[in-house]
Write a protein that binds this DNA or RNA. Structure first.
Lengths: 174, 174
DNA sequence: TCAATCCCGACGAAGTTCGTCGGATTTCGC
DNA sequence: GCGAAATCCGACGAACTTCGTCGGGATTGA
């Protein structure tokens, strides 16, 4: 039913990021089998199609997907899923990574602060941004299409947590 | 003048995080010299004092600061700045780290998704969360009080920033 | 021609963020 | 004791962002 979930926490990506990533995963699953229509994806993922239309524009403009117009048209990836880093996808959908204005990846935004030069706090946000960037770029779209158990990715070195977390063991609460 | 800056990007922390961190840094600078009033901090950092009053409640409830009421009162840190990890500070201010609802640190929120169990995308957000968590917890409040590396003009925006100093390599800079 | 689909711009409602306001309470200095 | 300085607390509201909806146009295959 796609209930609107409360934000409940920090560092929260918008639904653009969420839906867009799911869209890309869906495209990756059908990669090589011709274009997939947004109608199919919207139905399969239970997402509003008109909204997906908006998101996909960003993905197209970033060169991540290409479209085929007309009947039996749709979208498909322009590259192999193994070569698409999730950092690209997220940046295309949500803009440059910027936990704080003074730490934007985009220099045009970074200069606005006025505190630059004596602001020691900046270090924190830059570190956060880099950690985020590294994490996102170390995962490819292909990593997300593999069925859960088979996934055997390298550890990004950042976390001490091997994440064998039993997500499947969680009892669904509905 | 504290102009409200446009969001311009993803993963954006709220001003609670920004102001709260700056508040903590200011307290760290005066650590050991008795309580500092919000009035002083608000003036020095050019932040609205009534708003700081709200933020500091979270910090007090988290046990990071303690208050002295009455005239010449104010706030001070409960621990040495070297022992306060920024992860604690940010969590106190903004709640559990959760780039996505399905990847909240707080298990109470994580169960709401309904897609858990077959959702492969979850892996991405969990990794992002862990990277974030690690980055925040690897910086202490003391790291942010040290004066900026001398003669290092630091034009932000060069995204290929090597992040020089490992925190553990304690060069006792004073 | 008809239907499916992408494409595009505008719009609006819900929710969150970012504070403001007014007052109550505690404590220090006189 | 009195007043000033400060913390404490709850309520409120305006601006902004997000999350879509809507209507229509353009393009293509059958």
């Amino acid at each position: 039913m796609r209930t609107v979930l409360p934000s409940s926490g920090a560092v929260h990506f918008s639904t653009r990021g969420e839906y867009g990533v799911r869209l890309m995963v869906e495209l990756a699953r059908h990669h090589g089998a011709g274009p997939v229509s947004l109608h199919e994806i919207a139905e399969h993922e239970d997402l509003p199609r008109p909204y997906l239309e908006q998101l996909v524009i960003s993905l197209r403009e970033a060169g991540l997907v290409q479209s085929t117009r007309g009947a039996h048209g749709g979208y498909e990836l322009t590259r192999e899923p193994e070569t698409i880093r999730m950092g690209e996808v997220v940046r295309a959908l949500e803009g440059p990574l910027a936990p704080m204005v003074c730490a934007s990846e985009d220099p045009a935004h970074a200069g606005v602060c006025g505190r630059t030069g004596f602001c020691t706090v900046n270090l924190l946000w830059v570190r956060v941004r880099d950690a985020l960037s590294t994490a996102l770029d170390s995962i490819t779209l292909a990593d997300l299409t593999r069925p859960r158990a088979a996934a055997h990715p390298f550890h990004a070195g950042t976390s001490a947590d091997p994440v064998p977390t039993p997500v499947a063991a969680a009892t669904p609460t509905n």
